[in-house]
Simulated assay, not measured.
Amino acid sequence: MPRSIWKGAISFGLVTIPVKLFSATEEKDISFRQVHPEDGGRIKYKRVCEKCGKEIPFAEIAKGYELPDGRMVILEKEDFDNLPLSTTKAVEVVQFVAEDEVDPTYFDKTYFLEAEGPGAKPYVLLRDALIKSGRAAVVKVALRSRESLALVRPKDGVLLMHTMLWPDELRDGSFAAPPENVTVSDAEVTMAQSFIDALAGDFHPEEFTDAYREALEAVVQSKADGIPLVEATEEAPKEAEVVDLVAALRASVEAAKKRREEAEKAKAM
C-alpha cells in the first residue's frame, strides 16, 4: 500500500471528514543516469555557495525569496508550517458544480482520498450525495507549499481529488486558432463526421500501450545483451498538403473500417 502524502479533513458544512491523501498516478518513463561514456561512471554535482565557494550539504540548504530590490528573505520550515492559512490541514468545500462545467485544462494532479478513523460514515455520506446529485465539490486545499483549487468527485466507490491550476496560470491559446477566412464545405464536414463515426467506440484505456517506452526498453535490453536489434521498417513520408479533402477523408473512412474489422476478427480468435 502506498504511503499517504497528506493528512487533514474535508469540511462539509458542519460535518468534518478526517482523510488521508494518496497519489493516484505514477510516471512509467524510463529513467536514465548521466554518465561518463568512457567508463560508465555516474556524473555527480556539487552544491556550491556562489558567495563563499563552500560546498553546502543538502540538509543545510534553505529556501530564499529574492525581493525586487535584491534583498534575500530566508524562510525556515516553521514559516511554512505556521502559514496564516485555513486550508493547510483542511479541504474547504466552497461550491458544488456539474463535472462537465470544469474545463479539463485546469486539472493538474489526481489523488485518492481515504477516510481515516471515524471519517468513514461522513465520507460515504458525501460520496453518495455527490453521486445522487450528479455534482462534484469545488474545494480549496494547501499542498506542497501552495494553495490550490481542486475538484472532489466520486469514482468506483472512492472520492478522487483533482488539484487545479489557477486561471492566471492558463495561457491564452487564441494565437493557435486558424485564420478566420479559412472555411470548409458541408461535404467535407459530412465526410469528416463519417470518419469519426467509423472510429467511434467506448474508451478502454487498457487497450492502449506506450509504444515509445516499449521500443526504448527493447533497445536497452538489446545493448545489454549485445544482440543487434531488428530495425523497424519506415513508412514512406506522406504529402504535407492535401488538395482534395473529401477524397482523402473517404479513403481514411475505408481504411478505418478495414482496421476495425481486422481488430474484431483478432478478438474473436
Rank of each mutant, 00 (worst) to 15 (best):
G201Q: 08
H36T: 10
L143K: 03
S185R: 11
D225P: 06
L83V: 15
C49F: 04
D186K: 15
Y106A: 00
V189I: 15
I61S: 08
L143V: 05
K109N: 12
R71L: 03
D225W: 09
D108E: 14
A236W: 04
F32S: 04
I43L: 13
P104Q: 07
A115Q: 01
P57C: 09
K155Q: 13
V253C: 05
D29K: 15
R42D: 13
T25S: 14
A247H: 08
K109F: 04
K140C: 01
E55N: 15
I74R: 11
L199G: 10
T88N: 11
A256L: 06
A9D: 00
L113Q: 00
V243C: 01
T110Y: 04
D108Q: 13
V48Q: 04
E261M: 11
T16K: 00
G117C: 04
M164K: 03
W166L: 09
A177I: 12
V15S: 08
A218S: 15
K44T: 13
E50C: 02
A218Q: 14
D100P: 04
K7D: 09
G119Q: 00
A218R: 15
D81E: 15
K77W: 05
V242G: 09
L143P: 03
F32V: 13
I61A: 06
E101F: 06
D202Y: 09
D197I: 08
E147Q: 15
L83K: 05
V48F: 03
A255E: 13
P37V: 11
D168P: 04
D108G: 07
P37Y: 07
L85W: 04
I43H: 05
V230T: 14
V253A: 09
E261K: 13
V93H: 00
I5K: 05
V73I: 14
D210E: 11
A176H: 08
L165Q: 12
K140G: 01
K258G: 04
K51I: 14
D108A: 14
R213M: 10
V184N: 07
I30N: 11
K238N: 11
L126C: 00
D100W: 06
V138W: 02
I5E: 04
L159H: 00
R250I: 07
E38D: 14
R71Y: 03
R71A: 13
L14H: 09
A198K: 01
